[in-house]
Each structure stands twice: as C-alpha cells, then as structure tokens.
Design a protein around this nucleic acid. Structure first.
Lengths: 215, 215
DNA sequence: ATAAAAATTGAATGATTATTCAATACAAAA
DNA sequence: TTTTGTATTGAATAATCATTCAATTTTTAT
C-alpha cells in the first residue's frame, strides 16, 4: 500500500515534468497560430501540428479547445503582468523614471509586437461573449490601474500638480496604450514604437509642464 | 429593341428598390447578430433568420458570407463617417466648439454603444488576415485624421499653442477614442459616455490651458 | 387572364472541424 | 525480460455550416 503510493508519486512527478513541456509547447503554438492565422482560423489541427503533437493529444491534454484558448490567454496575461509588476515595485527608483519605464515596457518589442497585439485583440473581440475571457482581462486591468494611480499620485505630489487627478491621468494613459496598440496593427509603418512612446511622453509633458524628462 | 430596353430598365428599377430593402435588412441583421453572438458565432442561418429571409437567399443575395460581412463593415464605416464628416464641414462654427462636437459625437449613444463597439472590435481583430477589412478601416481613419489635424491646426493658431503639433494632438485623441471604446466594452459601469467625454476634454484642457470650454 | 421573368425558398451537399477512443509506443517496476 | 501503467497516436465520428440549386411563389408585361 505504502509502496504503491510512493511509486505513484514518483511516476506522477516524472510525467508532470514531461507534461509541462507539452503543456507549454501547446500554449506557445496556440498563440503563434492565432497570430499567424487569426482566432477564427485557429483549429486544434493547426495548433497540434505547430506544437508537433498529434491532434488527439492536444485535445486530450487540455480537455477542450476552449480550455486551450483560455489557458493561452491566461499565459499571455501573466507574461504581461510580470513585466509591469516588476517596474511598479522598484521603489528605490524615482517615480518619474518609473513611469517612463512603464511606457518603455508597454511599447517594447517584447510586448507591443504585431503578433502579440493581434492575439490580444482577438481575445478582446470575444470578451462580450465569453465570461472567462472577460474575467482574465478585467482582473489584469484592475491591478494595473490601481498601481498606475498610486504611481501617478506620487508624481502629482512631487510636481505639485493638482489639476488632473491620478485616476484621470491613469485612465487616459491606459486608454492611449490600448488605442495605440490597435493602431500598430493597422499601420506599423507610422505607429513605430518610437512614435508611440513619444506620443505618450508628450501627453505626460502636457500634464507635468516643468518636468524635462518627458522630452 | 427600344421597348425591350425600357422595359428592362423599369423592371430593374422596381426590383432594385425591393432588393435594396432586403439588402439593408440583411446588413442590419448581420450587425445585430455579430453584436449579440460575436463574429465567431455569426452564421448565415442566424443572420437570415433575423432578417426574416431564407438562408439560401441570404447567400444568394450577397454571393458569399464573406461578401455580406464586408458589406456590413462598409455600411458601419459609412454611417460613422457621415456623422463626423458633417461636423468637420461646419465652417461657420468656432473650431473649439467644432472639436467639442466631434467628441460628443464619438461618445454619443448612437456611435459608442456596446453593440456597435463590439462589432467594430470583431472586425478589427480580423484586419490582419483580411485585406479588405484593412482597406475599409484604413481609408476611414485616414480621412478622419486628416480633417482632425486641420481642425487642431486652426485651434493651435487661435490659441497660439506651439508645443504640441496638430499631428500629435490628433493622433493622441484618436488613440484615446479607440482605447476608450474598447474599455466601454469591458466595464460600461465605469466607462460611461460622460466619463469618457470628460477624460478627453481634460486632455484638451491640458493642451489648451487657457480655454475654459474644455471644462 | 396568361405567359414570362424574377425573386425566394428550403432541402441536399460537401467541406471543415472538435472530440472520442481503440490501438500503439514508451517507460518504469519487478 | 516481462509486466504494468502511462503517454501518445491517428483514424473514425458526429456536428456544424457555407454553398448550391431545383422547385415554388411572386411580380411584371402583354
């Protein structure tokens, strides 16, 4: 009895490592497939082929296509969250430099590339009809906004800026980022990362008139 | 010969009116169906049922589903365009009042309601994979931007504002609108029309410091 | 009123695709 | 090596859906 339990456990651990590899391979393949073909044209067969596993296995591993899509969105969401969470936590860095880093992150090639953006928008477009998508997106947005407001509040205090509330600045920034991401998809020639960053920094410049770091 | 031609013409005219009715019924039904079920779940059968015509007819009338979708996007795009075109052309009205009208239009319940927005985003999400969608969206954006820059330029001259170029202000506004529309979908409780309009006007206030109309 | 033409139907077709599952490959344990 | 359990395959299944088209209804012209 005891032995059986132990055996089972080691077996499980070993296979879990194996499974994890396939798990991630499939999530990566899903994101790539959505980026290359669009959500409407993303089939289990395509994803499985890209992940180099059989079609049956892909479905078996994630129970359903829906589940695979949700896991992929979750992964994307976590990846993005990790990237900004780190910056918000850098308390030793000056708030203005910190917000500049947030902008740099939001328009870095790792985050704001056409593949990732097209996947985001694909999921956004279904948010109204899939409560699970909405939950994932909302939870992320909420924390981001909260942290952003806190940071803006610090900057308002430092600069003695009183006309625009942290909420207003934070929401304006957030919506600008969403809008610009969308436009990167439409016209990447015009909406380069530099162009977008510059636009956002100019916005901050209009709020924090005497601060030169928002060039 | 002559008679035949005339007959043909009258026949054609009469039927075109009839056809137009069905044509528009189908486009309306398509937009409603996308809004209610999402693009992924929009079938010819659903659209036809909503338009109260047979499934075969819907397909016959538009040659293909793809064509019906493109026509619906085109219609949506024209509808929006008509709404702002009119405002840009009101040369007798003061530029600042004109831009305020543009904002009011962009967040009117006719334009920025959840149904319309979800349809827009559904199409946006496929833009990368359907050149015809991209063309329609780009053409619209281009003219809007052009007119907006012209208007901002006038305002810059009047207010003697030199720090922010018309292009910068116009692009910032445009991306804010896109971003806010998206957020209306996510969280309509917070992102009311009033909230959005206020946010945008505050942005203008930060650019045109001495102008009280941007309350 | 009748014939001809056009509009419209709805059932059949064929393609696509998520899901299932019996069979096989593989790995670990005895 | 053999046995046992797990991972993985790939072909079969069943559902969904765009598209087609012969048949029917409606409209128009004479």
């Amino acid at each position: 009895m005891m032995k059986a339990l132990v055996n089972k456990k080691t077996t499980k651990q070993a296979s879990e490592t194996e499974i994890s590899v396939n798990h991630q391979k499939l999530i990566d393949a899903t994101i790539e497939t959505i980026a290359k073909r669009g959500l409407a044209d993303t089939t289990i067969a395509h994803v499985a082929k890209r992940a180099k596993v059989s079609q049956g296995y892909a479905n078996f591993r994630f129970k359903s296509k829906d589940n695979l899509l949700i896991s992929s969105l979750q992964y994307l969401s976590n990846e993005y969250k990790k990237s900004w969470q780190k910056i918000f936590e850098e308390n030793n860095i000056d708030p203005i430099d910190r917000i500049i880093r947030i902008v740099q992150n939001d328009f870095s090639s790792k985050i704001a590339n056409r593949n990732k953006i097209s996947v985001w928008i694909a999921f956004y477009s279904e948010v109204k009809f899939r409560p699970s998508y909405l939950t994932i997106c909302q939870r992320q947005d909420e924390i981001y906004s909260q942290q952003m407001e806190k940071l803006v509040n610090e900057i308002n205090n430092i600069t003695n800026q009183k006309e625009f509330t942290p909420k207003e600045v934070s929401e304006t920034y957030h919506s600008m980022v969403d809008g610009l991401w969308q436009r990167i998809l439409f016209d990447p020639k015009i909406y380069t990362h530099e162009f977008c960053k510059n636009l956002v920094l100019k916005y901050f410049k209009s709020i924090y008139v005497n601060e030169d770091r928002f060039a």
